[in-house]
């Protein structure tokens, strides 16, 4: 048992080592020789918008200009620029509109803060109205809530009501 475990363990270590070496080799080879693949380019292009067309992500934009930008991303990737650097380059050159969302600076914070604030306000308002309504209606029916018992339907009630209705409506 112990032996088997040890053997397995060795085998696993061996494969893990082999795997690491292989992947390492693969990545280094890749970084040196290969140009970045379309998928790597698209992964970044997807997050950017075409600067001249309206609301079209760069990865799916069919125009010649967009093809050039994708090639630019490819070049930048092969030069070792990171995703963040490439995005920053696009913002510097073509303006903030190439980003899928406004950058979180200055006035742009409004875009992120206002909707939750309004929604929260609405929720608070609704909740308070609820409280007010239920309180005033309890005051009317009186404490103890006898009515609530009758208006809370049981299973039998469901069938009974349905039956009654069926009779009346035939």
């Amino acid at each position: 048992m112990n032996f088997a475990f040890g053997k397995n363990y060795l085998r696993i270590t061996f494969y893990a080592l082999l795997f690491t070496i292989l992947t390492f080799a693969a990545t280094t080879v890749f970084a040196q020789d290969d140009t970045p693949t379309d998928d790597e380019v698209n992964a970044i292009a997807k997050q950017l918008y075409c600067p001249v067309c309206e609301n079209t992500p760069l990865d799916v934009c069919p125009t010649e200009a967009c093809r050039q930008w994708r090639e630019l991303i490819r070049t930048q990737l092969s030069q070792g620029m990171t995703e963040a650097e490439i995005k920053q380059y696009f913002v510097d050159n073509y303006g903030a509109r190439v980003l899928a969302e406004p950058p979180r600076t200055g006035l742009n914070w409004l875009v992120y803060l206002l909707p939750p604030a309004i929604i929260l306000l609405g929720a608070v308002f609704l909740f308070r109205s609820f409280r007010e309504w239920t309180r005033s209606s309890q005051a009317e029916t009186g404490p103890g809530g006898e009515r609530s018992e009758t208006s809370s339907p049981s299973k039998d009630d469901y069938v009974a009501r349905l039956e009654e209705e069926l009779k009346n409506r035939k």
Binding site: G95, A96, V98, A100, E101, P102, V111, Y112
Partner: peptide, 20 residues
């Protein structure tokens, strides 16, 4: 509406896209 506000007050066009 926000891109209009941004355009008016800062002069910068922004995109509010799917991630938002």
């Amino acid at each position: 509406i926000f891109p209009l506000i941004s355009e008016l007050f800062t002069g910068a066009k922004v995109t509010v896209g799917p991630p938002f």
